[in-house]
Design a binder for these strands. Structure first.
Lengths: 320, 320
DNA sequence: TTGAAAGCGGTACCAC
DNA sequence: GTGGTACCGCTTTCAA
């Protein structure tokens, strides 16, 4: 085509508002440049950051993302999968918003469409899984308290049938061991994941003959309850005792004092899941294993590491 | 086809894992049963609930949802729109995560694809818009404090160049007027949307010759700061003073005392936007106007209305 | 009722 | 290069 002819075509495209029909293109080339994201949770606080990075990874490669909510129901998940496959998506991410959840790994034939599990794992089917490194997180939080000079560090843990609880405990023990500190079972308490438990267990710990000089909580909700107990007992945080939570929830920066917390690497996890999926779509060999992404520590006032410097939870920053 | 033949076909479908190709179907029928959702925010806290209800409304009608993040950038928004149109979406929702934002209503020819604006409005193009009723919310929060017997109700407001601030003030004044209470300009303070402002302005209010017996804050961040000031001054909430926030953010139930708040009807807004769009897609006449969805009040301890009964923010409940 | 054929809007491959 | 044609998989129409 001559240069001037090309010019005229482009002109016409602009004038007539011509847009190539991707549907026809997809039909012919039999791939859609689209991935499906099925989540079981669009209420909680963990899925947002993962969604954001998945969308980012996909967009960067020219892929679109179908967002589907299964509400944790098998039937809805299957229905969504059927639709996604009928719509010929190039790949699928199954994202969970809860820690432990039986998705019962779809026993469906997905027709060879690549799948990645996010924030959950399965042994039922050979797929790559991306989850947080809870053990490393447990180690990180404990080590930080040790580095601050704390020596009697208590752990308020979640229910032990959660693997997250088991791993966080393991990390806690590891950190103590690495520092040459003794492991005192009396300093480890287990409850539910809520504030009520944090409150009650903190009370228990503080009435011990030799109370702890730091409390590491396996969730921010537990930590919120612990802070309540400390406030009630007029024990100053972080002067008298350091507190560190886990999960870096939205409210942790709004605690008094602002709560230091081990952050789940949600954004990075979504990014990794997206990358793994997109590579698989492009035919790269998939590394079928459980990818554990390291947690990070968000330092605020409750651990005693900071005086002025404050890490933001989100857009907002804390004064004083 | 005979009954037995039908049987055999269904059997074969099951055995061969046949799935009809929606892409081919869409090409032939020239509609895709898919809508696009473009948001400028996948970080904040307002978009989640809207996304959820949009997905719900769409799913219920057999529609899939493309999720796109523009990061508030015009160029990305245009790029996403181009892709969505090329992919022949049946309709588009433009959702904002911020209160006031110039999206500059795409001056693009969308080829007649129906559009709904969500959490923002525009006069630039004739489209239906769905936003919260900020004035009603201002009225609601103030009226509640009046009903609790408060008579000197202060308002800590956001910057007045935000329409939300103007409307919430209007609602506040309306409620006072309806109750026959005087409007005292000294009780109205304006700052930024953050805690720092809430803290400082609450201090100002409480050093007035006749301090207020209630503070209505135009955001939960402002309220968090106000609670800090009250705590510092050892003024008991809600015995000595009632506090009500606005937005019902994730952290409001984690304040001490748990913060009552005027909740944005995010879920309902998403649902309405979805319904409007789906109706438009099905050819129903669109009501091109600004739909203002009423706010609701979430009662917690800080207003003094409750002693035991606690309203949950999300899954979590408060003890005591 | 059933079967054959055209066509949706692109892409890919062919011969020229 | 360039123009013609088959084809992706489904819907629709028309004929048998």
């Amino acid at each position: 085509m001559s240069e001037s002819a090309r010019q005229r075509v482009l002109e016409a495209i602009g004038k007539l508002n011509y847009r190539p029909n991707t549907i026809a293109r997809s039909l012919r080339k039999s791939h859609t440049v689209t991935i499906g994201l099925i989540t079981d949770d669009l209420e909680g606080v963990f899925t947002m950051a993962m969604m954001r990075s998945i969308e980012e990874a996909a967009s960067a490669c020219g892929f679109s993302v179908f967002l589907c909510n299964s509400y944790g129901e098998m039937s809805r998940e299957r229905a969504h999968l059927e639709v996604l496959l009928a719509k010929q998506v190039s790949g699928i991410i199954l994202m969970s918003g809860y820690k432990v959840r039986e998705r019962g790994a779809p026993a469906m034939d997905l027709g060879g469409v690549p799948v990645v599990y996010l924030y959950q794992y399965t042994w039922d089917v050979p797929v790559p899984c991306v989850i947080p490194d809870d053990e490393g997180g447990g180690n990180l939080g404990t080590k930080h308290l040790i580095d601050l000079g704390r020596r009697r560090i208590a752990l308020i843990n979640g229910p032990m049938h959660f693997e997250a609880s088991q791993l966080r405990l393991l990390g806690y023990q590891q950190a103590l061991k690495n520092a040459g500190l003794p492991f005192d079972p009396a300093l480890v308490r287990t409850g539910k994941w809520n504030e009520q438990s944090g409150y009650e267990l903190a009370h228990e710990l503080l009435t011990l003959p030799t109370p702890p000089d730091a409390i590491f909580c396996a969730s921010d909700s537990l930590a919120a309850g612990a802070l309540d107990a400390l406030h009630e007992l007029q024990i100053h945080v972080p002067k008298d005792i350091s507190v560190v939570g886990f999960d870096n929830r939205y409210f942790s920066g709004y605690q008094r004092p602002p709560l230091s917390s081990v952050a789940l690497p949600l954004y990075e996890m979504g990014l990794l899941a997206g990358e793994i999926l997109l590579n698989a779509i492009q035919g790269a060999p998939v590394n079928v294993k459980i990818h554990r992404v390291p947690c990070t520590l968000v330092k605020r006032k409750s651990c005693g590491a900071l005086s002025d410097q404050i890490a933001p939870v989100h857009q907002e920053r804390r004064y004083s």
